[in-house]
Structure formats: C-alpha cells, structure tokens
Amino acid sequence: MTWDAFHHRGDVLRDVVAEAEARRDGVLPTELPGVTEAFGDAHHLVAALQLRWHTRLAGSIERALQDQPDDLESAVVSGWRDAATGLAGVRRVLDEQRAAPASPEVGETLERAHRKEAAMLAVLAGLAYGADVAAVRVGERLEERARTTVHQAA
C-alpha cells in the first residue's frame, strides 16, 4: 500500500466513523464515496471499524485504571462504558454485524474479536489470567454490566 493509499484509507475510515456516529442506526455505511476503493468489501471495512473500537476501548480502560487503581473491575466497566459512549455508532454497527454478518468472514472476524476482547476485560479486571473459556465468560459479564449502565445513562 502506497503512502497516499494509506492516507486515503484513513480519510475514508474517518468518514465512515463520522457517518456511523451521526446515524447511529447500526447500518454499515458502505455507500460512502471511497469505501469500495479503500476497503474493497464489508469484511475489510468491519475489520477496520473493529480495530478503531479496540483502540478506543484499550485507551479508555487504561485511563480508567489510572483513575481507579484500587477497583479494577469498576475501572474496566467504566472504561468500556466510556468507549461505547464515545463510539456509540461504531459500537452499534459492530453489534449489528455480529448479530447478522454481511458475510461469513465478517461473522468469524467479529466472533474472534469478541472472545479476545472479553478475555482482555477479565484479565484487566484482575478476574482471570488467560484467554480461556472461563475468562471469556467473565469478560462477557463485565461487558453486559457496562452495557446496562450505558443504556441506563442514555
């Protein structure tokens, strides 16, 4: 990928994120100018949105852990909630794509990302030490707790 193509892809992704945030309808905005040229298909676009989400989530949790070092579980929930509030449209697109993927590849990518994210939440909360099935379940409960508090605040 050339330098110009890399920057163009970043510009298109910013437009996609802005559109998802403005609409908040959960629909993958593939109709925007440049999406097909920059990403080719829904799988690559969803993967880029998932990476954007993960980056925001990791940063939000890191800040929350600095603010609440004595309560790791609450910090992780707070970090997830902050990320979901900041990228509500993107989170909704990812949730919709996980529920009804545009392709089998999209579904596989999002399921794998979900398991890794759930395990990460559990580990950062100090409730697990690896990425096993138990850690995923614990992380899913933390995510559900965060989602519940996001919906209550909305």
Rank of each mutant, 00 (worst) to 15 (best):
E31M: 03
V16F: 01
D41A: 15
D11Y: 09
A113K: 06
G26D: 06
E31V: 07
D71W: 09
R92W: 11
D11F: 09
A118P: 01
A134Y: 10
R137A: 12
H151F: 10
E105P: 07
V17I: 15
H8V: 15
P101M: 01
P69Q: 02
V90F: 03
W80T: 10
H114R: 13
A18Y: 02
R14M: 10
A38V: 04
A20N: 03
T2W: 09
H44A: 13
A5L: 11
A5Y: 09
T85W: 13
H44N: 14
T2V: 08
T2D: 13
T109C: 10
A118H: 01
V133P: 05
R141N: 12
F6R: 14
L45S: 03
R63H: 15
L87Y: 05
L57E: 12
E19Y: 01
L32T: 00
H8L: 15
G130K: 06
D11Q: 12
H8D: 15
V106W: 03
G126Q: 06
A134F: 11
A134T: 13
G86R: 09
R56P: 04
R23E: 04
A119I: 00
T149L: 12
R112I: 05
A119W: 00
L94W: 04
V138C: 11
A47N: 09
W80N: 10
E21I: 05
D15T: 07
E73H: 06
R98G: 11
S78W: 11
V27A: 06
R92G: 08
D132P: 01
A128Y: 02
D11G: 08
A100R: 13
E19L: 02
T55S: 13
D4V: 15
G34W: 00
Y129R: 14
V150Q: 04
G40V: 11
E21N: 03
T2G: 14
T148V: 13
V27R: 08
R137K: 14
L121P: 04
H151Y: 12
A135D: 03
T55D: 14
E73Y: 02
A118E: 01
E108H: 09
P104A: 06
T55W: 13
G26Y: 08
R137W: 07
W53S: 03
A113D: 07
S60N: 06
E37A: 07
V136L: 00
A83V: 08
G130S: 11
R115T: 06
D82K: 08
L13W: 03
D71C: 12
E73K: 07
A83I: 10
G40N: 12
A58H: 10
R56W: 07
L28I: 02
R147W: 08
L121N: 02
D67P: 11
A154S: 07
E37K: 04
P29Q: 00
G130M: 06
V12K: 04
S103G: 04
V133N: 08
A118L: 01
V77F: 10
A20Q: 03
D71V: 13
W53T: 02
D70W: 13
T36I: 14
D41M: 10
P29M: 00
G126Y: 05
Q97N: 03
V150H: 07
G130C: 09
G130E: 08
H43W: 13
D95W: 11
A128K: 02
Y129P: 12
V77I: 15
L142Q: 00
T30Q: 12
E21P: 04
S103W: 05
E37Y: 04
Q50C: 10
T148M: 11
W80C: 12
V16R: 02
L72G: 05
A131N: 10
A75R: 06
